[in-house]
Design a protein around this nucleic acid. Structure first.
Length: 803
RNA sequence: GCCGCUGUGGCGGAAUAGGCAGACGCAAGGGACUUAAAAUCCCUCGAGUGUAUAACUCGUAUCGGUUCAAGUCCGAUCAGCGGCACCA
């Protein structure tokens, strides 16, 4: 046969697939559907790097196999194209971001095509296209109308370098996730989405979906549900202080209180002259305000604080007067912004109490509070706690909670770490928020007929130094009339965060060109939910949570028909550069897929991406290792040299074929692409050892290889007159034929392997022992020894325990 | 600090549910073919002792345990990675 000319072959088939819309999905109710989804990329100016094809190829293999199994597969791709890097690039190079985006998308599209990915190119979505973001804006309007979008003065995370507000989720170790610039706290008026209203359902419904355990647990951790009580402490200044605690059972151990520097009572107590040391307090407040949340937590090692001189609180269970402090270890953003301090059983309170010489009382026995706080005390017994003495912590919790309720001291309460989603950005390249402000009517939604609200053309995309969006400088955009009263109104000039467009894109793929509605009922009912969604672990607490939230909201307003968008969620590991570091432009270690495809071919690239290691684990790129995959394909190509006639498996290869088909079939479902490829490599080794292959064998071999290496297999099919590889039925196997008639098993003496014997594969336990004991070699080794115990595992081994 | 994960040859990694550790591939060494090189094909390839194609011993981060049998289960320790982090 001719030489394996991958470049020509791959070009030929890619052109063919594109021209014929081969992978375009159409609703077909006679077939079961399968919706495979990969996270759509942000089309950066750098193009794809070697990490992108890993998840794409994986689900491409799944999709191609599912099609061969008779499913109607939807496998779409699109572009999450709003965002800062494009805007920054546009500013730097003075090109309109839309133009930059179009160029980047074109490049990404070509790169995806050159990998032979079987995306449905008729369903591409682009979040920056007005036909798309019309519906992003529409969803925002529904949230607004439902009272789930609201504007609020809030202390937000402000990236000093990007000049933009960040969501909590976008702040990493006190720095901007994207540019690593310094993040400071800033009070700004922001649009917020009430994701907290869905916190409970976001936890509960996670039981109904098939996500990797680590994904489930990080979502649950992020939402951070805790149960406890809100308790009211009377003060000598009148109004009571509310605290939240998960340990109401330790109430007798509360020897002082701490409130956050931002707590509203401070100003009140300053104003009514309750406090004596106002200067000291104001000084502390000022210092605390300058610190970011991150800096505050960095200071954790050394507790600081100031006593509120002039006011005391009263412990509601023992009526003792206790002092109140302000300290920045108490956050205004969690609970009530005030705590009861139980230094005997909380290490932060302990540290603070030691520093300020406050009494430490042991209310649960078992630790040594002379040395440290006894925090791990859930199984202890109460002491120094009045009517709780002698009870277990568990019982004490029940009893004190009843006591609190009976005496109207407070109530049971659930708290979440999850905060509402800061939804505005003061940048140009995002979806405009479709509301106006009218002095008479307040914030008013645009009528749906005015959507999409497009971005105006501007000359300057630079964010302003005062933190306003570049749109705020554009009179023609801002000034409008109020849809309600017809009076003068101003448009909102903030835009949406990048997460907006990606929170619902999987829906749009089902019906991408619908002008009248977000998705048609028919498309919704046929395609949803997503059967298999794969994406990066880094999106577990951001995109995945946000999109589940939006989906649940759309479910509530009856736009979608499922509670959850994604049935199954898996994650791939990152691909590191050859030097073991993250691929980055600045380190110059980025592997460009184009170079690999040019030198080794797309099929070799695809195989290597899958063969590199455990799909879920981080892998280090090694260009040398691609050679093995290339060699494998060369050997596949050369199989025609030893081809013979035959329409059933030869006896020599029958078992190997059944076994390999079985392994490849199940490995694909379990994301074990590396071992599936290893199994096919083994099979080809067996074929070459056998010296010949017949048409039936080659046909099936190429069929199972097709999802992995679609170009070469399609070409060989054509040349051999087999038809079209991708249209074949996925081969089946017979479990009974997966093992050889004779197998070699190990014979152990007291657990040590002494020799190996051949036995029938289906021999029972008893038969195995008989065969082993009658074996001459075994007999010899048994001379002079007594068998104490006989163990046999069919197909594996015989173990004779001798004395 | 808390939660989760990982630790296997020179390297990437295999090893259903406790049952022959190192599949498959890379690199390396030797050989064949070749004027030569590349490519290809064949052989070797965990460590050690050794009569060296026999036989034996050790070996899956470390120490201990359960078991006829442990990379796999249990306990402790060490190292690394990821996430969260003053969340009351």
């Amino acid at each position: 046969m001719s030489k394996y000319n991958f470049a020509a072959i791959e070009k030929k088939w890619q052109d063919y697939w594109l021209k014929n819309n081969t992978f375009s999905a159409k609703i077909d109710k006679s077939k079961p559907k399968f919706y495979a989804l990969v996270e759509f990329p942000y089309p950066s100016a750098q193009g794809l790097h070697a990490g992108h094809p890993r998840p794409y190829t994986a689900l491409d293999i799944v999709s191609r196999k599912k099609r061969m199994e008779g499913y109607n597969v939807l496998f779409p791709i699109g572009w999450d194209a709003f965002g800062l890097p494009t805007e920054n690039y546009a500013i730097k190079n003075k090109i309109h971001p839309a133009k930059v985006t179009a160029e980047n998308i074109k490049r990404f599209r070509e790169q995806c095509m050159s990998l032979g990915l079987s995306f449905d190119w008729q369903r591409e979505v682009d979040t920056t296209n007005p036909d798309y973001f019309k519906w992003t804006q529409w969803i925002f309007l529904q949230l607004f109308k439902a009272g789930l979008a609201y504007k609020k003065q809030a202390a937000v995370n402000w990236c000093t370098s990007c000049k933009v507000v960040l969501a909590n989720e976008e702040v990493v170790a006190g720095n901007c996730e994207r540019c690593h610039g310094e993040v400071v706290r800033k009070v700004k008026s922001q649009w917020m989405l009430k994701i907290t209203e869905y916190a409970d359902r976001l936890i509960q419904d996670i039981d109904e979906v098939d996500y990797l355990d680590r994904i489930k647990s990080s979502q649950i951790n992020w939402i951070g549900k805790s149960q406890g009580a809100q308790v009211s402490f009377k003060t000598t200044a009148g109004a009571p202080l509310e605290v939240y605690t998960t340990r109401p059972d330790t109430l007798f151990g509360a020897t002082y209180m701490v409130i956050s520097p931002e707590h509203p009572f401070i100003e009140k107590w300053v104003a009514d002259k309750t406090l004596k040391n106002v200067d000291e307090i104001n000084d502390y407040k000022e210092k605390a305000a300058k610190k970011s949340d991150f800096e505050r937590s960095e200071m954790a090692k050394d507790k600081t604080g100031v006593l509120l001189d002039g006011v005391k609180a009263i412990n509601p269970v023992n009526q003792e007067e206790i002092p109140i402090f302000i300290s920045d270890y108490v956050l205004m953003s969690y609970g009530t912004g005030a705590i009861m301090a139980v230094p005997g059983h909380d290490s932060r309170d302990y540290e603070f109490a030691k520093k300020f010489n406050l009494p430490i009382v042991e209310v649960v026995k078992g630790g040594n509070i002379e040395v440290e706080a006894f925090t791990d005390c859930e199984k202890g017994v109460m002491s120094n706690s009045g009517f709780l003495n002698g009870l277990s912590v568990e019982d004490a919790k029940v009893k004190i909670t009843e006591y609190i309720k009976e005496n109207k001291l407070g109530e049971e309460k659930t708290n979440f770490k999850l905060r509402d989603w800061v939804f505005s950005r003061q940048r140009y390249w995002g979806e405009p928020i479709p509301v106006v402000y009218c002095a008479q009517c307040g914030w008013v939604a645009l009528p749906e007929s005015e959507l999409p609200l497009k971005l105006p053309e501007v000359d300057n995309y630079l964010p302003t130094d005062n933190g306003e969006s570049p749109l705020s400088a554009l009179e023609s955009f801002i000034n409008t009339t109020c849809p309600t009263c017809g009076g003068f109104a101003k448009r909102e000039t903030d835009t949406m965060p990048q997460w907006a467009g990606s929170s619902w894109y999987y829906l749009r793929y089902c019906d991408p060109n619908n002008d009248n509605e977000l998705i048609s009922r028919e498309a919704l009912e046929y395609w949803m939910p997503v059967d298999w969604y794969n994406g990066g672990m880094e999106h577990t607490t951001l995109h995945l949570l946000y999109s589940r939230f939006w989906h649940k909201f759309l479910y509530d307003i009856k736009v979608v028909n499922t509670k959850e968008p994604y049935k199954r969620r898996t994650s791939h590991g990152m691909i590191l550069a050859e030097d073991g570091q993250k691929m980055s432009k600045s380190l110059g270690n980025v592997v460009n897929p184009n170079d690999i495809v040019d030198e080794y071919g797309a099929d070799s690239m695809r195989l290597y991406e899958m063969f590199i290691g455990d799909f879920e684990k981080t892998a280090t790129w090694n260009t040398n290792s691609i050679k093995g995959c290339k060699r494998f394909l060369e050997r596949v190509w050369a199989l025609t040299d030893i081809l013979e006639a035959g329409d059933s498996y030869s006896s020599e290869l029958e078992t190997a074929f059944h076994r390999t088909i079985k392994k490849v079939t199940s490995d694909i479902e379990q994301l074990k692409f590396n071992t599936a490829i290893a199994a096919m490599m083994s099979l080809i080794n067996d074929i070459y050892s056998n010296g010949k292959v017949n048409r039936k064998e080659l046909f099936d071999f190429l069929t199972i290889l097709n999802p992995f290496a679609p170009h070469i297999t399609e070409e060989m099919f054509e040349q051999l007159g087999f038809g079209e590889a991708r249209k074949q039925k996925w081969p089946t196997y017979d479990d009974a034929l997966c093992v050889d008639a004779l197998v070699e098993i190990a014979v152990q003496f007291s657990g040590k392997i002494k020799l190996r014997i051949n036995v029938p594969a289906n021999a029972t336990r008893e038969e195995l022992i008989e065969i082993a004991k009658s074996d001459n070699g075994v007999k010899k080794l048994l001379e002079g020894k007594k068998i104490i115990k006989e163990i046999a595992v069919p197909g594996k081994l015989v173990n004779l325990v001798v004395g």
